Simulated assay, not measured.
Amino acid sequence: MQTAVAPINSSSIVLAWDPIPGYVNQFFPILHISEFFNLSGTNQSRQFNIYVNRFQWLGDIMTPLYLYSDSVYDVVPLPSSPTYIISLEALSNSTLPPILNAFELYTTMSNTSVPSDTGDVDAMTAIKERYRIQRNWMGDPCSPSAFVWDGLTCDYSLSNSPRVTALSLSSSGLTGEITKSFASLSALQNLDLSYNNLTGSIPDDLANLSSLKLLDLTGNQLNGSIPSNLLEMAQNGLLTLRLDENPHLCNNGTSCNVMPAPKKKKISIPVIVILCIFPC
């Protein structure tokens, strides 16, 4: 907003673009305007109308106060057209030409994708709000597949809604306790919460994730003991559980041995065969 365009020997600004045929058919323009001249106490004014393909779209636009900014737009999309020409035309009583600082153009997008599992959507929304995730997490977590949320891996089935199968929030600045909302991602296989500042104990509910194969909690400030069900899964080789660099974990004398129990070697007993030969 620190730069702008204004005509020198004209009373209009013209913007034009040709949409890709068959790609989209609705557009939502947003025009950002700021006044660089202090018009207070002067006889000067800056007023203009905005036209789209020579039809008035927005009228009687006045610039905001000096060094303030504003945006003009309409909630109704522009009608379909092979080409678009947006023009800012000064009113007859305006002593200054129109001014434009920035221009945004949003398009509608066809989405025939199946929405994500409702439970996963609720869980991911709760996780986003709980930790105030500073990522581009908007819309549906898994759908459409080209815009899946950063850090997520989703499974897409022809007969079911997309499911979240992996979530990586490593080094994301998470603080506080591990929310039980992670346990609501019932199809989760990999969960990486390493190198954050998570505190408190490990929730027992994570053991309810029957598909969980990897749980990485390395480099946090967790305390207490490992839930017995998670410990048993790790010791049986069903779960890779990473807990290094948690100095306060298992300080109460409880076991933190998450290595799978060594398999017992089968002892074979040699069989001695005695061959007796009798004379005929």
Results as ranks from 00 to 15, higher is better:
Lys264Ser: 13
Ser268Glu: 10
Ile86Cys: 04
Thr125Met: 12
Phe28Pro: 00
Arg46Trp: 14
Ala4Cys: 09
Ile277Val: 12
Leu215Asn: 00
Trp17Arg: 02
Ser81Trp: 06
Ser161Trp: 00
Gln134Met: 14
Gly151Asn: 04
Asn160Asp: 09
Cys276Thr: 07
Asn160Arg: 05
Tyr51Cys: 08
Trp57Leu: 08
Ile86Phe: 07
Pro98Gln: 11
Pro64Leu: 09
Asn257Asp: 14
Asp216Trp: 03
Arg130Asn: 10
Val121Phe: 07
Arg46Gly: 11
Ser168Asp: 05
Val148Thr: 08
Pro141Asn: 02
Asn236Gly: 01
Thr153Val: 06
Asn229Ser: 13
Ile133Asn: 04
Thr108Met: 07
Asn196Lys: 00
Ala4Met: 10
Thr165Val: 14
Pro29Ser: 06
Pro262Met: 09
Met233Lys: 14
Gln221Leu: 11
Asn38Cys: 11
Asn136Asp: 14
Trp137Ile: 03
Pro19Arg: 02
Ser170Tyr: 00
Asn223Glu: 12
Tyr73Leu: 11
Asn93Asp: 13
Gly151Ser: 04
Pro82Asp: 06
Pro77Tyr: 05
Gln134Lys: 15
Gln56His: 07
Ala261Lys: 14
Leu174Arg: 01
Asp244Ser: 15
Asn251Gln: 12
Val258Thr: 14
Gly176His: 08
Gln134Thr: 12
Lys213Gly: 04
Pro82Gly: 05
Glu104Ile: 10
Pro279Leu: 14
Asp117Leu: 09
Glu245Arg: 06
Arg135Asn: 13
Ala146Glu: 13
Leu78Arg: 03
Ala90Lys: 11
Pro21Val: 09
Ile99Gly: 11
Arg135Asp: 13
Asn25Arg: 05
Thr42Ser: 15
Gly173Leu: 07
Ile274Pro: 08
Asp192Lys: 00
Asn9Asp: 15
